[in-house]
């Protein structure tokens, strides 16, 4: 199985004095469904940020989608990110754009024609049960609805890798279930690799998954 993420002796830090992840070795294969857990402040979100190049490794090597993140140029980083779908705990929707335009963002960036964007946006908003709110603005939606929009956006361009940071952290049961269904669907139907940072792994998951835990800067697989 191809490695979508490969970390060797990976160390991550925001400053030289405080290392958050220390000499971690792990890999995520293509099509894997992965959970990363750990206590608050253990470095889960930091590790996830490094996967989309927002944080460069302090030491060691990190390869994502065949690209070495340590040495990546800004144009290659943009190219890598165009194949990743990201879901944030705080949604990160563009406030001045409608829901439709927010979902279409990765498609626009990837250069899809407007009619294809419209069809895809319509399909995805149907999936997240929000097609009736296509012309609304994010602030007009509840937290759960905004996260469903963020999820639709992450799936819009059929990414090879989906990264989700606490995607159901603040959501009600209905929205949480919808998000998990979409993540499972992306993994099983679109064959996307899914990496989720969470405090809580749902019990009723319909896919096989890998589980990494972070403790004391070390990343290890929980069997």
């Amino acid at each position: 199985m191809d490695k979508v993420i490969l970390a060797q002796d990976l160390s991550l830090a925001y400053n030289t004095e405080e290392t958050i992840i220390s000499r971690a070795n792990f890999s995520v294969g293509s099509g894997d469904f992965v959970f990363i857990t750990g206590a608050s402040g253990s470095g889960k979100s930091t590790l996830l940020r490094s996967f989309y190049g927002a944080l460069k490794p302090e030491n060691g090597s990190l390869i994502v989608g065949g690209v070495e993140v340590n040495k990546i140029s800004s144009s290659k980083l943009n190219f890598l990110r165009r194949h990743i779908g990201i879901v944030f705990q705080d949604y990160k929707l563009v406030k001045e754009w409608t829901i439709g335009k927010n979902v279409a963002l990765p498609l626009i960036i990837n250069g899809y024609a407007k009619d294809i964007c419209d069809i895809q946006v319509d399909k995805l908003l149907n999936h997240v049960k929000l097609s009736h709110k296509v012309d609304k603005y994010p602030q007009e939606l509840s937290g759960g609805e905004q996260q469903r929009v963020a999820m639709a956006r992450a799936l819009a361009h059929n990414p090879i890798l989906i990264l989700a940071d606490e995607p159901t952290g603040n959501l009600d049961d209905y929205s949480s279930r919808l998000i998990w269904n979409l993540l499972e669907g992306a993994n099983t139907q679109l064959k996307a690799t899914v990496v989720i940072v969470t405090h809580h792994i749902p019990e009723d998951l319909a896919v096989d998954y890998k589980h990494f835990n972070i403790e004391g800067g070390d990343v290890y697989e929980v069997s």
Binding site: N78, F79, R81, I86, L93, W97, I109, N110
Partner: peptide, 16 residues
């Protein structure tokens, strides 16, 4: 800033 950051996270080039 926020919009530009979000666009950057999805790989938008600087001009976009």
């Amino acid at each position: 800033n926020e919009r530009m950051s979000i666009m950057a996270m999805f790989g938008a080039p600087v001009w976009m």
